[in-house]
Nucleic acid binder design. Structure first.
Lengths: 131, 131
DNA sequence: CAGAATCCGCGACGATACTG
DNA sequence: CAGTATCGTCGCGGATTCTG
């Protein structure tokens, strides 16, 4: 990197953007969500539970979330390796904030669909197939 | 699109992912944030206030946010065109949810930086500046 | 003043191996 | 079982130019 790590000055002080950077990416939320439901999960258990994720993305996302202090990784030195993941306290606190946002999203889904019906011709989502 | 619009089945029912899709993208939050502070702003006022945004991205983001019902657009039929933007009630409600997330982010900034200091060599942010 | 249209780079992500 | 490594794709967003 030619400058500092992104999180040291991401939006230079906007904690919201910082938070969204932490939970951004395609797979972090699914992981967090799964760990919130099942409390603690092994690697392949997560992989099976999250549809479509590859080893690479799962590993990478888990490492990042652990680095951020959102999830906890416990490795057991056994012959067939066993690694368990769970949410940290910060992860649990995150869930609370996310639920508020989810509540808003639930309401908005209706609104957006209706707005789209009214304004649809101007939407930036072009249709390129006739099927 | 070859299938339905993304928001009609984004995560097929996860309102959280839906919400994040609404406020995702690079400029939507800065726009929302600016409108929340100044209540109502004109186009070029927004453009000046949001550092680095181009006409294209501003126009596009404004249209999307309006389509989603998060912001309101008022056009005045005057000789020098005048357009004013402001948050809708849904936009205001969003701000509330975002503030909780921002609070979490504020706490996490400290945590992440400290974790990084300890775990830094394993971070996924490679240094390739001299290669 | 308030946009619209086009081209393009880059980084996130996917696919596909290989390993202790 | 729990990862790593490498390569290729794809689309968001940046830069630039044009218009009512």
């Amino acid at each position: 990197m030619d400058d500092q790590a992104w999180y040291k000055n991401s939006f230079d002080g906007c904690p919201l953007t910082f938070a969204l950077n932490l939970i951004g990416g395609k797979w972090r939320l699914p992981i967090i969500w799964a760990l919130n439901k099942n409390r603690t999960m092994r690697y392949n258990e997560l992989k099976r539970s999250i549809d479509g994720i590859t080893n690479m993305m799962l590993t990478q996302s888990l490492k990042e979330l652990e680095l951020y202090g959102i999830i906890r990784r416990e490795q057991f030195p056994e012959v067939p390796p066993r690694v368990e993941y769970s949410l940290t306290e910060h992860g649990e606190e995150l869930m609370a904030a996310l639920k508020a946002l989810a509540g808003w999203g639930k309401k908005m889904k209706t609104v957006v669909i209706q707005n789209n019906i009214e304004l649809e011709p101007a939407a930036g989502i072009p249709d390129s197939s006739d099927s």
